[in-house]
């Protein structure tokens, strides 16, 4: 059974406040907007005024970046309560977080940090996802990470790890195709094989973003998930592969740093929309 995503199976954009005036000036040909939860945890002011407008006119995805679900430490109950309050207020069609940790020992690292995939980490993350879903009163999506190192302790493949979390908790998955490309290149595995092994029926949303490439200690290619450039063709080709298999899915363009002006960003979303349309048409034809 497919994961029941409430977002429309069309292209959306990660909202940046500098685009608000352009977005509000006319109805945008987009399926949804996504915001980072933590930017809307102030009491009031412009952030809530803008989010209220987006909520009123578009489907909404709230994407957490700081819950630290992948940590070995207990979840931050205060932060869970803030997420609950935000979801209650804006009733987003989707809430998602990351297979990563970002806090330890009372310090917040403001980054998505990697974890070893072991039976022990699997058990603690299943408990965290259970706790988060109970606290929020909703099913959530968990996103595959982009990573730069691996752990000698890991004993489970990432795809199997995510599948097992979803099976045990009922959560859905957020497939970040750029993260797949970045991790595959960084760790020398085949991105297409990863996609083939990914439980696509559990995917409630797709992320597409840009990255840049540098070199590691051995002079080998190292991709950095920077969200500061257009989606490259190789990532779009992987995306085509995903939607050819799974059919059209809610697809977000993430451009967080040095974001271009609104027409350019919307243009990226329209590229993704064109590919979703093509995948939908092909499936309709093969079903007929």
């Amino acid at each position: 059974m497919r994961f029941p995503s409430m977002l429309p199976a069309s292209a959306g954009v990660g909202f940046k406040p500098q685009h608000f005036a352009a977005i509000a000036a006319a109805r945008q040909p987009l399926g949804f907007f996504e915001v980072h939860a933590e930017n809307y945890m102030g009491a009031g002011g412009t952030p809530h005024a803008q989010l209220g407008f987006l909520r009123e006119h578009y489907a909404l995805s709230i994407h957490g970046v700081a819950l630290s679900i992948g940590s070995s430490e207990p979840l931050d109950r205060d932060h869970l309560a803030r997420l609950r309050q935000l979801c209650d207020r804006y009733q987003p069609e989707s809430f998602s977080e990351h297979l990563a940790w970002s806090s330890h020992g009372g310090i917040f690292f403001n980054d998505l940090l990697p974890l070893p995939y072991t039976q022990a980490s699997l058990a603690s993350i299943i408990a965290h996802v259970d706790e988060a879903q109970n606290a929020l009163g909703r099913r959530m999506l968990l996103e595959n990470p982009a990573t730069y190192v691996r752990f000698a302790q890991s004993e489970i493949a990432e795809t199997a790890f995510l599948r097992e979390i979803a099976r045990a908790t009922g959560c859905g998955l957020l497939l970040d195709v750029n993260n797949v490309f970045v991790s595959a290149r960084n760790h020398g595995f085949d991105a297409s094989a990863y996609i083939a092994d990914f439980p696509l029926d559990l995917v409630g949303e797709i992320h597409l973003a840009g990255h840049f490439e540098t070199v590691d200690d051995a002079g080998a290619p190292l991709c950095i998930d920077a969200h500061g450039s257009p989606v490259i063709d190789d990532v779009l080709a992987l995306f085509d592969d995903v939607v050819a298999r799974a059919g059209p899915l809610p697809t977000l363009i993430e451009w967080d740093n040095d974001a271009p002006d609104w027409p350019a960003l919307r243009g990226q979303a329209l590229v993704a929309q064109g590919r979703l349309d093509r995948a939908g048409a092909l499936r309709a034809r093969s079903a007929a």
């Binding site: 730069y148 190192v149 691996r150 752990f151 000698a152 302790q153 590691d216 200690d217 051995a218 080998a220």
Partner: peptide
């Protein structure tokens, strides 16, 4: 401890 890469 345990942080590795396939290249190093």
């Amino acid at each position: 401890g345990g942080v590795i890469a396939h290249t190093s």
